[in-house]
Each structure stands twice: as C-alpha cells, then as structure tokens.
Design a protein around this nucleic acid. Structure first.
Lengths: 198, 198
DNA sequence: TGCGTCTATGCCCTTCAGTACAATGTATTA
DNA sequence: TAATACATTGTACTGAAGGGCATAGACGCA
C-alpha cells in the first residue's frame, strides 16, 4: 500500500514510515492541490494541524478528486472529528496513534469504510437515538390525514396551500394542525419543524 | 475467530462460513436469547431480515450481554442503519457483502471499533451538530447582527424573544429578518429554516 | 465633508397562524 | 343501537409575522 501524507511535520512522516514501511510526504496541500492527481479510492493522510483549514475541507469534500481522506491531528477533539467526518473525511484520529490502530484505519478506509473512535460513535448514536426514540412513536400515533398534513408542512407550505393541495378547507387544515401540535407537544409549526428536523 | 450468526438463512450461514472458515448458526434470536451467554467484547452477527425486531433491538442495547453486535440485512437502507447503530449496534451492512468487506468489519468491530458507510457517517454528523452551518456561502454574506438573528432563529425563538435576548426592539429584529430573507431569497422564517436545515 | 453601510427604532397596516366554541357526517365497534 | 374516533367546516377572535415609510446615530472612506 502506497502511503501519501500531506504534512509539514517530519516526525509524523517518520512515524508513518515506521508503521507502513513507506510514506511519501507532501509538505503543503497548497502546493500539491493542483499537481497531486487523486485517483478514485486512493487514500490520502492529511495533517490538519499545519494545513490550511479551507483546503483540507475542500480535500475532504472531494474538490481535488474522489480520494479517501484520513485527517490526523496531534490534539484530536470530538468537535473536530464531527467537523471533518461531516465534510466527508473517512477517518479522524491522533496523528501519532499506535501502529495497530493506524493499520486498522488504513485497511478499513481502503476497503470503503470509515474509521471512528468508539466514544465519538456513542455520542453520535446517543444523539440520534434520542431523536429516533421520541419522534417515531409520535408520528405513528398520528392519523392518516394528520400525517399527510405533516408531509406538506415539511415542504414549508402555508395552510392555504395545504388546503388547496388536499382539497379541503383551510379551517380543516388548522384543525389537523391543532391535533398534531397537541400530540407532539409543540405550540406551532416552527417548533414542529425543528422537532422533525433534529 | 469464532463467528456466531443469528439467522434462519442457511445461505447466509454458508456465506459467512466461506468468508471466515467457520460460522455457528443460531436460527432464532428468540430461542437463544436466554441460553446464549454473551461475553464482554464477544462479536455476534445478526440477520435483521428474519428476526423479531424487538429482540434485535434488545440485543443491540445490551439486554442479553455486552457483546458487540453487527446487524446484517439483504436490503440495507440508511434509515435502518441509523436505527440499529443508534440502538448500539457496532456495524450495519449488506448480509452478502464481499469477503473483504466482511473481514474488514469483523476486524474493526472485534478491536473495539465501529464500521459504518461514509454517507451514513455524514448524516450522523449533520444531525450531531453545527457542521454545515458555519461556512455556508449565504451565511457569509450576512452582517454580524444578521448572523446573530439567524442563530436565534435556529433555536425556534419568536421575534419578541430574540429582541429580548439581543436587547433590541422587536422592530429591529424584523428589520434584520427582512434583510436576511432578501439575501436568502425566501419569503419567511419557515422557508429560511428549511433552507438552513437542508 | 458628503456618501454608503450598518444598526436601531417608531407607527401603521395587512396577512397568516392558531384557538375557542361550536356543528355535521361517516365509519367502526362494543 | 349507542358510543367512539375521525374528518370536515363555520364564525370570530387574538397575537405573531412581515413590510412600508420614515428617522437617526455611528463609522469608514474618497
């Protein structure tokens, strides 16, 4: 496996060299962004600590090609992990992680997966789980017509527009909405949308 | 590595047998839920397609022990992935994934990691927090005060509440909102929230 | 110093959202 | 058959949202 590292840090290059047996270093993403030809499914390691954040972001988003990107940091945080992974990075971990971890990340990412720490994953799951557990049952207890109204609501339609689309009076739409708000425990459509979106 | 599969499907058992060299099959989670002793850090593969959803859910949540659970499905969807991962599963993938992928998942999960697709990761990150919010090109063209108003708007606050929080008149909040709506090309706060959420 | 931008605010107006207090009709079920 | 849930609609009201028109101070810049 060919290891490409974008980092100005020589010690990091040596670290990866030790772990993987080879490691081509590109000091700056700025310099190589044009020259570096990133192939599909190619794997690139980038040191977020000393690179331009905007360029790393574009790299993750695939502006320079569809390569898989693993972001490294000497002081990793959950917030940063969410940021980079949310932008499309395939992994985020400590730059000087132990060999076993680095190899695991490499093989996981190379085969199309992503790598993420257990703690962070639990946070993400907890956040989502909270939503999933509260909202799904709520939607389930709506009547058929009420769900239809919610569907239109998600499109941002006004009561009048919903009435037209469902071919009923605006007053009826309001009646459905009142029932929906009651079941969700929200005071108005804005709060309902926020609840549904989260 | 000892492979335990909970599935009624013989072809799936044969598939894992081929990939891993061994695979103990438990046809129903219902039958084994009491008898199966799940040890800490043990790895269990469960076929969600033909198992009782409620039992799989309890398995993921750790009701039957602290084992790591990988959920398999012949028709995987992001929604289902989020559901199972949110309940504590350590991985979610196609039941008949290629050998390389399955082995990858096994090694990642067995060593305490989690396996998840990239697209799904981005969805989770988006739900988790303020990822795509900070650097929207539209947000960039707002003034400082306008961005503050947007921030309050995201919390679902009313104009009156925003005015109180920013210590300005409600009329001023409306003025900022009018400017924001203009820059985003939306008619009202509901449309703006939908735009920001997407 | 005049021009533009950002910020802030007042008064007044229209429209929309939501509710209180109703009624009516159609199913389904006990 | 009576009770219940659901869907439908009306009138009238309150409050929030949004905009029109106008004013005014602060600040930066040519």
């Amino acid at each position: 496996m060919d290891i490409r590292l974008i980092s100005a840090s020589n010690s990091l290059q040596q670290h990866l060299q030790m772990v993987f047996g080879n490691c081509t270093q590109y000091p700056s993403l700025w310099d190589v962004s044009g020259a570096l030809r990133l192939q599909e499914s190619e794997l690139v390691w980038v040191d977020a600590d000393n690179q331009d954040e905007d360029l790393v972001q574009r790299l993750c988003r695939g502006d320079f090609g569809r390569a898989r990107v693993v972001v490294l940091s000497s002081s990793p945080t959950d917030v940063a992990a969410v940021k980079w992974l949310g932008m499309g990075a395939a992994g985020y971990l400590h730059a000087f992680a132990v060999a076993e971890t680095l190899q695991q990340v490499a093989s996981a990412v190379a085969s199309g997966g992503i790598w993420i720490g257990v703690n962070l994953m639990q946070q993400l799951c907890a956040r989502f789980g909270q939503v999933a557990k509260t909202d799904s049952p709520l939607l389930a207890q709506l009547t058929e017509r009420e769900r239809e109204v919610v569907s239109h609501l998600r499109d941002g339609k006004s009561n009048k527009q919903i009435a037209r689309d469902m071919d009923i009076a605006e007053r009826t739409v309001k009646a459905h909405l009142t029932a929906i708000f009651g079941k969700f425990g929200v005071p108005d459509r804005v709060q309902l949308l926020l609840r549904l979106a989260s």
